[in-house]
Amino acid sequence: MSDAILRVEHLTMRFGGLVAVNDLSFDARRGDITAVIGPNGAGKTTVFNCITGFYKPTQGRITMRQKGGAEFLLERLPDFRIARTAKVARTFQNIRLFSGMTVLENLLVAQHNPLMAASGWSIGGILGLPSYWRAEKQAIEKAAYWLDKCGLTDRADDPAGDLAYGPQRALEIARAMCTEPELLCLDEPAAGLNPRESLVLNELLRFIRREHGTSLLLIEHDMSVVMEISDHVVVLDYGTKISDGTPSQVREDPKVIAAYLGVDDSEVEKVEAEVGL
């Protein structure tokens, strides 16, 4: 597929003797919402950490290809460059906000790199050059835009730690979007949300893809979210890919059913015989 924004090839990650991810290959297409699913301990978060540079994979290649055609080998970039240069942003399963800073400040920190350049690497900023204050004003406007999209405008001047769980998740997505990513990786965005918040989240993710052309890669437990919004699903079990396709294809895949529901070995054979393996 030539329009892959992210191509993962033969990714393997070992921790000592434990193989968390085993020879995984998949593509995420540009403009798609790609979901990585799998039971607990299947290695989903490890895949994410490899893509976003927090782990260095034992083997394999992860290629990010931007709109302009520039390609980056993510496994070779230091983590902060993945966000800055390769334009891959992420959120965390256990939300990592700057809880002592206000909601607005969280979004300004996300615009660190452009603001840093505008402040003349602080020198112009200390001298109080007007160009920096203009840049900061624009940054605040951009933050306000995302606050509006997440319904957080009223909470802009509250500490992020004061927000309830759902708004914290939304803020983390807004913060990631403030880095202007081409690929946004979401680690269990719907975890802990109630059904109503889940729907709002789906809408937000669709909006991001539609209006900003950002491709999404998400890990999810919540099948309703996955089936509802994703275009493409990759299923992991014990670090290995067991299925890859559209939501409906995956839903019908007996191996996926077996992995999720857990069946006896004899039944696996039976199921496998049925599908002709």
């Binding site: 976003t52 540079g53 927090f54 983590d79 902060f80 460059r81 993945i82 966000a83 800055r84 240069t85 942003a89 992420r90 965390f92 990592r96 906000l97 700057f98 809880s99 002592g100 800073m101 920190v109 996300a110 660190h112 790199n113 913060r175 990631a176 880095t179």
Partner: peptide
């Protein structure tokens, strides 16, 4: 507040 989150936002 959170070093890992900083790195995920492209801060060196």
């Amino acid at each position: 507040e959170d070093e890992i989150a900083c790195r995920s936002l492209g801060i060196n």
